[in-house]
């Protein structure tokens, strides 16, 4: 079995696949990537199944070597990275050979990056998935963040061409769309006016579990405690502080704060990738509209995933004048 050796790791690197589905009723968070389309794309670029496990990192990647030839790809955003000091692009696959060193630097204009390796990260399945859930220490490598010195087993890597995404993944723009509810009626007209008309700031208090929002205080006239009920990724809770909290991938399965609204699925990865300190606005849409957006995006993403172009049979790492990688070119 081949191994990925981590020589150096950023502060928030974990093993993630598409999540631990179907166990919410037993209190098990789905977890999974903060930006699922980017992990799926990274896997496709190296010839993996979209559901294979890769590495998720925040802000900065790390340094890696392998003991057998692999293909790798980095997605999520523009990322500065090199193989043996030579710059390579994100959003396309490259060879990494034994003896070579892959260095992944800072994520540019986003938060989360993804590294897929051909064969996938082959840590043991825990409750049906390899996803790391940090709060409960489940999955990944001993349920924890990765660190220098870690060795990750890799699955068998077959032959496949190097691929590139020629058109950038389309990201929605504009206000973040929300569907009111399930406790929309805990908030009166003035609270709703504030929520939909004032900007909020992406707070520094953020992790894989939740995103806090700074800005105007939102008051629930019916009180800020409800009988605990189920949550979804994208639930916007409003505790008694009046500061909204958006639940993210690693959320708790139940919660006791009223939920004013839910972020549309298509906009949740974008919220995860929004820079700390940036301003966001919300716009209410109907459930029907949000479902239409999600179905449309699924079709677009499926086309992008199956429409990757071969790079041609060069194993040379092409030198490029920039280290910023491919962004929205």
């Amino acid at each position: 079995m081949s191994v990925l050796n981590i020589k150096d790791a950023g502060p928030m690197m974990t093993v993630q696949d598409l999540g631990r589905a179907g166990l919410s009723r037993f209190g098990v968070s789905g977890a999974g990537p903060m930006d699922p389309p980017s992990l799926r794309m990274a896997n496709r670029l190296v010839g993996n199944a979209e559901s294979d496990a890769g590495l998720e990192f925040a802000q900065v990647g790390g340094t890696f070597v392998v003991d057998a030839p692999v293909r790798f790809a980095v997605t999520g955003a523009a990322v500065g990275m090199t193989v043996d000091g030579k710059p390579v692009h994100a959003w396309e696959s490259h060879h990494l050979l034994p003896g070579q060193t892959l260095r992944i630097g800072a994520v540019v204009n986003a938060v989360w990056g993804y590294l897929a390796i051909s064969g996938g990260i082959d840590t043991p399945l825990v409750l049906g998935a390899r996803t790391t859930h940090l709060r409960t220490g489940l999955g990944g490598l001993d349920g924890r963040r990765l660190a220098a010195g870690d060795h990750l087993p890799l699955g068998a890597s077959g032959h496949a061409p190097l691929l590139a995404l020629r058109q950038p993944l389309s990201r929605p723009r504009g206000p973040f769309r929300i569907v009111p509810g399930p406790q929309a009626d805990h908030f009166d007209a003035s609270a709703w006016k504030i929520f939909l008309e004032e900007p909020f700031r992406i707070a520094t208090h953020r992790d894989r579990m939740a995103q806090m929002l700074d800005g105007p205080v939102i008051s629930a006239f019916a009180g800020h405690d409800i009988i605990s009920d189920g949550t979804v990724a994208g639930s916007i809770q409003v505790p008694s502080s009046g500061r909204p909290i958006v639940l993210m991938a690693e959320r708790q399965t139940t919660g006791g704060y009223p939920k004013i609204a839910t972020v549309a699925s298509v906009d949740l990865p974008r919220l995860a990738q929004a820079m700390t300190g940036s301003l966001v606005r919300f716009r209410a849409i109907t459930r029907d509209e949000a479902e239409d957006l999600l179905l449309d995006q699924s079709r677009v993403l499926a086309a992008a995933l199956s429409g990757l172009e071969e790079k041609g049979e060069t194993t040379e790492i092409k030198e490029t004048p920039t280290t910023s990688g491919r962004s929205n070119t």
């Binding site: 569907v179 009111p180 509810g181 399930p182 929309a184 009626d185 009180g223 979804v232 839910t262 957006l293």
Partner: peptide, 28 residues
């Protein structure tokens, strides 16, 4: 734990939780 005290709600009722989930509320 406080009990929900919002304006008259008729139960059961079904509330949207975004575009991929809904909540069936049986009582308060």
């Amino acid at each position: 734990m406080a009990v929900m005290t919002n304006a008259p709600a008729h139960f059961p009722r079904i509330a949207a939780c975004g575009d991929s989930a809904l909540a069936v509320e049986f009582s308060d």
